Simulated assay, not measured.
Amino acid sequence: MDWATRLKVASGAARGIAYLHEDCHPRIIHRDIKSSNILLDYNFEAQVSDFGLAKLAMDAYTHVTTRVMGTFGYLAPEYASSGKLTDKSDVYSFGVVLLELITGRKPVDVSQPLGDESLVEWARPLMFHALETGVFDELLDPRLGKSYNEIEMFRMIEVAAACVRHSAAMRPRMSQVVRALDGIGNSDDLHNGMKPGESELFHTAQQSEEIRLFQRMAFGNQNYSTDFSQTSWKS
């Protein structure tokens, strides 16, 4: 995919998830947001698919304690470790999808050097560096070369960094993600008063243990298929 197509897929998928979270009645938490559940037609219009694990959320404060289900590599750490599910779990998973589009890497790749198997943990310091300096080279999919819009790339990295924050409460809502990807509104909406990368400074012992548990569960598990599925629809 060229850059324009990647951005189109990201924006279309974000709008679909935002509709589930904020415009459906009752709201829907998808619970298995991943690249292979984003279907593309021949114009690369994105549609979110596979609602087999979806849960209804009756109000904005619902926390659904449930058996953990989903796909390793995309699961939010707090959900993987405790089973407590909110719409911010989907936001984390979507952040992983954005990182796939940015980097061209799999969510979990055991062929990578020790410590770099997790896409999110590998990307965190690189995202912080990119947002501080505007230098993206180490983070980006080499297949993109220099064929991308720097402002749009900065924006997508900024959104991805906000979505995969360790603290679920500090992640943005999907409507904020949509506006940011579309270049609408103030990017401060994403940050909740926190600079990109700043959440790294505030890990609690519980959060650190959640992350370690998540990594132990993910590495050495199953086959990780991260391809986007392409199909077409008739109107």
Rank of each mutant, 00 (worst) to 15 (best):
Q176E: 15
Q230L: 08
S232G: 06
M153I: 07
N192H: 15
L213K: 14
E45W: 01
R67F: 09
I17W: 02
G70N: 09
M69Y: 05
D227F: 04
D109E: 13
T204P: 03
G83R: 10
R165S: 14
L75K: 00
S35C: 10
V110C: 00
S175D: 13
P172F: 11
P113G: 08
V159S: 04
S175V: 12
M174V: 12
G73Y: 06
N223Y: 09
L7A: 10
E198W: 04
H25Y: 05
T65G: 07
E117N: 03
M58T: 14
G16M: 09
E45A: 10
Y92N: 07
E200H: 08
H203V: 05
E100S: 05
E158V: 00
D109Y: 06
G73H: 07
I17Q: 05
S167R: 13
T133L: 03
T103K: 00
R216E: 15
Y74F: 12
R155N: 10
L140H: 00
L98Y: 01
F219R: 15
T103R: 02
W233D: 02
A54W: 04
M194I: 13
D189P: 00
E209N: 07
Q206L: 14
R15F: 00
N223G: 05
D109I: 08
Y42Q: 12
L139F: 02
R165W: 06
L20M: 13
P113R: 08
D182L: 12
S235A: 14
N192S: 12
H25R: 14
D227K: 14
T103E: 03
P26I: 10
M1E: 11
S175I: 10
D59V: 06
E117D: 01
R173W: 06
L75Y: 00
K106V: 04
D137M: 01
E45N: 15
S93N: 05
G95Y: 05
F202K: 11
S36Q: 09
M58S: 14
F136N: 11
G115Y: 03
A180G: 08
L85P: 06
D90K: 07
G83P: 03
N149Y: 04
F51R: 11
